[in-house]
Amino acid sequence: MKEVIIGIPIQWYIFLSIALFCIGVLGVLFRRNAIVIFMCIELMLNAVNLLMVAFSRYLGDTGGQVFVFFVMVVAAAEVSVGLAILMMIYRNTKSTDIDTLNRLKW
């Protein structure tokens, strides 16, 4: 198989992953809609996945790509349970604004 990847430094992938992760962090801190916060968490998980695939490719090891599968499993489980919790919150408060849940702070 012809290699297409040669010529991209691994630093580029690290910087891209940092940028995506920080955008996810920004979204979690910035937004108040709980669904959008879930999406930003997905974005952060994907930034980590991308970094793991890049390193597995660079080191020639399949372990990194297998771990991406486990991250996907955890993300799917997290989303299903989280959205169910969100539905319950909406049913009780008629809103997905996380500021209505500030009783959880104390």
Partner: peptide
């Protein structure tokens, strides 16, 4: 800066 070494095993994916 580490440029990518030539792939040791190109079909690990």
């Amino acid at each position: 800066v580490n440029m990518l070494p030539a792939a040791r095993n190109s079909n690990i994916g």
